[in-house]
Design a protein around this nucleic acid. Structure first.
Lengths: 350, 350
DNA sequence: TCCGGATTGGACAACGTTGTCAGATGCGGC
DNA sequence: GCCGCATCTGACAACGTTGTCCAATCCGGA
């Protein structure tokens, strides 16, 4: 420990060969390691001047605690796990981005673990990773949020969990959501306002609760406004571009094809625009398209998509907050959506 | 330790309240903890039957070592750091995906850290995270790969590093690359084969070495084939969709506009297609477009992009391999590219 | 002056693994 | 039968932090 090299907190300081430990800080501040620990963890019960001295020593040494030792000794790992099996890379990129950013702000890190949604061993795997790493919490996204066995196992292991998911079932865990149904209603009303009355819809993956809510909202609004929504104008999809393309081709080949289509997400909406291009139809002149999510793809095609902006990054950040905040706040957080009117929708011609 | 609950390795076994430790395994196998450690880390020098006994105990208890304790005590963390500041979420998603997958296969984990490419404190930050977490290695992507101060600091701290980057400078670190120049040449030749002779190009971000190589390759091939590549048909971009859109609008407004455009990446190629749509031009009838990367966006627009397939996921996986393999293999890995001919290119009409 | 309680500080044992180093064992050769 | 050497095994001390628990100090009131 004698070869430890002090270095001042300026930019020209050499990078130390060995990182400072809590002992170095304690020595420099003239206190015990435990007192340093108290300061670091805001345990309170430390006198003003001691506190200042320790803080100064930490700054001088550019000390940061070793996370491994910390989580080995303590109860927390400052690590949050994000398990997912969602094929939409745009959606997941936003989720990860939002979560990572908030974690960084709070001094946490994010462990992202892709997995298989139909793996029967998933509950064991998740609990194993959680206990092994002493994860401070788990974030789940669709479609994992609906696996009962996973929820049971995680609850039994006493690992805090937040689901990013529509509020479909009795609230057995904390979760972050938005009102998918109201959002879909808003989308339908936008089309109605533009004068469209023959609407089509491409559904999302039936395993995702959100898919059903969006369908319900859209149908409600159509009914309220007296619009026709023929059964064969509601076609299945699974949130993927390919499924959307196929569905759109079906709709656009119909003799009585709809003049406006609401797709369950942006990938399928983009596919609808692509299919329209292929069929020689101009968007929005010949066909209006509304998407859902406002994922990056919405603005990376022509025309840019009119879509429901889902605050994905904010939702992920809120999930982190729920996990870190000591459960004192409301365990359900509903965030606002917004209709982004761009150029894929227009008035019904004629 | 008396309340530890044994459980067999079948699916009905209850999830244990406390995870098994190396002591439990040692006790069950009738050996010391050190011997268990030897088996786990393949240190060799363990008798056949002892090995089998330990392996059986590990399996029975579903034992997995605590990663925190492991990296606290040992030299390795089984953790690889990926620092990045790349605005292309598609590219980064592939990088992360490829790296995570390979890490999982090898029992490692990936710590992803977004950062600011122009943060003067970056070298210190990276070294700090690396030493603190005892990272087994670092992966860098453009444009971070070109920061000399970062490379210096990392080298001084003795942290293994792999760059995913074109081979622009003397090989001071291991790296994974592809031949950007040859790939760009291939793209130009494809356009020449289709009969185009008035070509345009949208350049990538000048800070990325790859941008220059792609330009050079494209120009070489054009010269070799005797094609015209007018100076004002080469316009700047920065790899973003927005920059590509602006560049494409400039090119398409020209009275002598090119009949084919090579964009520095897929985002800008997609923007070119979008701009063409906006201008009432049909792709590929009125304009051929070639991209670079074969990122997801290439197949999510209409028409799907002809592009150079860059094996991004494989490159990330190779980077992980280089880091984990004990430096025995060649520290430079060049992977193959491929021209994906889709429907954004076609013969020159007339 | 002394006492009780609140506040602050510190010694020491976890936490679960690997590194070090010495000890035990087995085997072939003389 | 003994020695030397290679092979295998284990006791014990790190690793860097937090938790537990007790000691010291300070304050106001009796």
């Amino acid at each position: 420990m004698t070869d430890f090299q002090l270095y001042a907190a300026n930019d020209r300081a050499p990078v130390p060969a060995r990182a400072a430990t809590i002992f170095d800080v304690a020595r420099r501040a003239g206190v015990s390691t435990k007192t340093v620990s108290r300061v670091l963890n805001n345990e309170g019960r430390v006198a003003e001047d001691t506190l200042a001295r320790v803080r100064a020593a930490v700054a001088d040494l550019d000390y940061r605690p070793n996370p491994n030792a910390r989580s080995l000794a303590g109860r927390r790992s400052y690590l949050i796990g994000l398990f997912y099996d969602n094929p939409s890379s745009n959606y997941m990129a936003d989720i990860k981005g939002g979560a990572i950013r908030r974690c960084q702000e709070k001094g946490y890190h994010l462990l992202t673990e892709p997995c298989e949604a139909d793996d029967p061993n998933l509950p064991r795997l998740m609990v194993s990773v959680a206990t092994r790493f002493r994860l401070d919490g788990l974030i789940l996204t669709p479609p994992l949020v609906d696996r009962q066995d996973v929820l049971d196992a995680v609850a039994a292991a006493n690992v805090p969990l937040v689901r990013i998911a529509p509020r479909t079932d009795p609230e057995r865990t904390a979760h972050v959501c938005m009102d998918d149904q109201a959002a879909a209603r808003l989308a339908a009303e936008h089309l109605a306002d533009l004068g469209h009355h023959r609407l089509g819809m491409i559904l999302g993956h039936p395993d995702h609760g959100a898919a059903m809510l969006r369908q319900r909202g859209f149908q409600q609004a159509a009914a309220d406004r007296g619009l026709t929504l023929l059964p064969h104008h509601i076609v299945p999809g699974d949130f993927s571009f390919a499924s959307g393309f196929a569905a759109a081709e079906r709709l656009l080949s119909l003799p009585d094809r709809p003049t406006a289509i609401f797709a369950g997400n942006d990938d399928m909406a983009a596919a609808t625009v692509a299919a329209a291009n292929k069929h020689g139809l101009q968007v929005p002149r010949d066909l209006s398209v509304v998407g859902f999510d406002d994922s990056p793809i919405a603005q990376v095609i022509w025309p840019p998509l009119t879509t429901i902006r889902q605050p994905t990054m904010a939702m992920a950040a809120a999930a982190v907050d729920l996990l870190i905040g000591d459960g004192e706040s409301e365990p359900v957080r509903q965030l606002d959506f917004e209709l982004m009117v761009r150029q894929s929708t227009g008035p019904l011609p004629g």
